[in-house]
Every structure is written in structure tokens, then in C-alpha cells.
């Protein structure tokens, strides 16, 4: 089996002797959008930080494009849950800070132009000069998205990017991210506990059991066709089965499967399921 483009190989995190998660294996292919879903305490954010290079795993390794991840780098951008904007810089200044990091040799005017273009892309042309304190929660997260996209990363990492926003804003921002990511063919990984978000955005959804000793119990392949539309996706055939499967997992199985691992469990061969595929489709394929 060839190694996937991004390959997570047996990583673990321990608190003292107790593992938060261990023996975690999964891969992400180029251009793929993967969601990692699970309850708090299963170590989702730690996994994302390890992929970003902000933390080192206690065991195992992450390999991206043939190179081991050993620290943060410009080819992996992070959209933080708390947006993490620098409050003394304007929206434009925050994006320009990232652009300057990527293109150290660019003159100031070119950096500003590029930053302005990325802000246009997320619909913040008017707010470029404002500081984060003068922006709404949704606008702040748009700046966070612009800052991440401005460095043209090969992998976009999102840590519950919309969980701090109200439902309406969350919806529009999900649309925005969906559009930007599919336009650019961006490889992305999103951590979430929002089932609908995962179904809307992801090609594959990794379901994590509760911690401690959490694991990816199942990989749900999202076969709903693209482009997806938030307004109509719930009427797509298979949506109900897919959603029910994930909700069932989060409500019950994430707990009952937690802790012990079944006989013959192999972290490298996590079962894949396709709940959205109807019996007719299955016979065709």
C-alpha cells in the first residue's frame, strides 16, 4: 500500500501513564477534505497541533509529502478556533504579516496588494483598515481564514473554526470555506463536533471514540455528490442515512466503544463505511 500524501503513523499522546490517544493511523490524499469528529477530551486539538508541528507526539510520526513533520512550517496553515488575530494590527496588517512571512523578498507594496486581494476573496474589502476589536466574530474568523489562505499552504488545518460563532454566521462561513477550498483544490483537515459541518465539507469523516485511550473507530466515506449546497444537502439521497450514522456514533457508540479495543484491532486498518450509499447504488458499483 503506497503511503498517502499526508500520513499519520501511530501517533500517541500521554498524560503521565494514561494515553489520551494512541496507535493513531490515517492518511489524507492531495486535494482531499477530511474531517475529524469526536467529543471533547479525545485529543482532537492535540492531533491538529501535532499535524501543525506545534506539538510533538509522544510516539509515532507524521509524514507529509515524503518529509517528516518536525515543527511548524509555512506549508501548513492553521485556522485557530479563537481566530488568534494580533489585536494591535488591522485586518490588513494581520494578513500582511502572514504574506511577509511567506514572501520575505517582496517589497512592501506587493505584500499589501496581495493581502488586500486575499481580504477581497473573503469579502472584507471594506474592513481592511479596522482592528480586530472593531470586527464582529464572523469577520474576525474571516480574517483568520484570509491569513491562512494568504500563504498558499499545501495543507489547511482548521481547529473547530466556527464553533464560537452564531448559527447564521457559521453557515455563511461554511459556505465560504467550501467555495474557497474547492476553488483552490486545497487539501484540508477540519476538527469539529458539528455533524452537519462535517457532512457539508468533508470527503471522509474520521470518527473518534471518547478519551482516554481514544482511537479512530471508523472512517465514514462521504459519498454525497459535489458541489454541495447547505440549503439542499439534507434532501440529497443518502444524507439521512449518513447523518444518522454519525449522530448514532456520537450519541452512543463513541462511549460504548471507548477504552477497550476489540480482539484483533489494527489501528492501521480502520474499517471504512459508506452509510450514504443506497442499496441500488451499491449493486451498480
Amino acid at each position: 500500500m503506497p503511503r498517502p500524501w499526508l500520513s499519520v503513523e501511530g501517533i500517541a499522546r500521554r498524560y503521565g501513564a494514561r494515553p489520551v490517544f494512541r496507535d493513531l493511523w490515517f492518511g489524507v490524499e492531495r486535494g482531499e477534505f477530511v474531517a475529524l469528529i469526536g467529543h471533547s477530551g479525545c485529543g482532537k486539538t492535540t492531533i491538529l497541533n501535532i499535524l501543525a508541528g506545534l506539538e510533538a507526539p509522544d510516539a509515532g510520526t507524521v509524514v507529509m509529502d515524503g518529509r517528516q513533520v518536525s515543527g511548524p512550517a509555512l506549508d501548513r496553515a492553521v485556522i485557530f478556533q479563537s481566530h488568534a488575530l494580533l489585536p494591535w494590527l488591522s485586518a490588513l496588517g494581520n494578513v500582511a504579516f502572514a504574506v511577509r512571512s511567506r514572501h520575505r523578498d517582496w517589497p512592501r507594496s506587493r505584500v499589501q496588494d496581495h493581502a488586500r486581494r486575499v481580504l477581497d476573496m473573503v469579502g472584507l474589502t471594506e474592513a481592511a483598515g479596522r482592528r480586530p476589536a472593531e470586527l464582529s466574530g464572523g469577520m474576525k474568523q474571516r480574517v483568520g481564514i484570509a491569513r491562512a489562505l494568504a500563504i498558499e499552504p499545501s495543507l489547511l488545518l482548521m481547529d473547530e473554526p466556527f464553533s464560537a460563532l452564531d448559527a447564521l454566521t457559521r453557515g455563511t462561513l461554511q459556505d465560504e470555506v467550501l467555495r474557497l477550498v474547492s476553488d483552490a483544490g486545497q487539501t484540508a483537515l477540519v476538527i469539529t463536533h458539528d455533524v452537519d459541518e462535517a457532512i457539508l465539507l468533508a470527503d471522509r469523516i474520521l470518527l473518534m471514540t471518547n478519551g482516554p485511550d481514544a482511537r479512530v473507530a471508523e472512517i465514514v466515506v462521504n459519498t454525497l455528490p459535489r458541489p454541495r449546497d447547505r440549503q439542499t444537502i439534507h434532501r440529497t439521497p443518502g444524507h439521512h442515512a449518513l447523518r444518522s450514522h454519525i449522530v448514532d456514533f456520537l450519541v452512543a457508540r463513541s462511549r460504548t466503544l471507548a477504552g477497550s479495543r476489540p480482539e484483533g484491532w489494527d489501528g492501521r486498518r480502520v474499517p471504512e463505511v459508506r452509510p450514504a450509499v443506497t442499496p441500488i447504488e451499491e449493486t451498480i458499483s
Binding site: L54, G71, P72, A73, L74, A77, V78, A84, L86, A98
Partner: peptide
């Protein structure tokens, strides 16, 4: 200084 701001600087290889 907030850890997240330092993390931003780190991910941007400052």
C-alpha cells in the same frame, strides 16, 4: 503574551 499569538508566529516561521 498569549500562547496562540506565539503559535501564529511559529506557524508562519517567524
Amino acid at each position: 503574551v498569549r500562547r496562540e499569538w506565539l503559535n501564529v508566529a511559529r506557524t508562519l516561521e517567524a
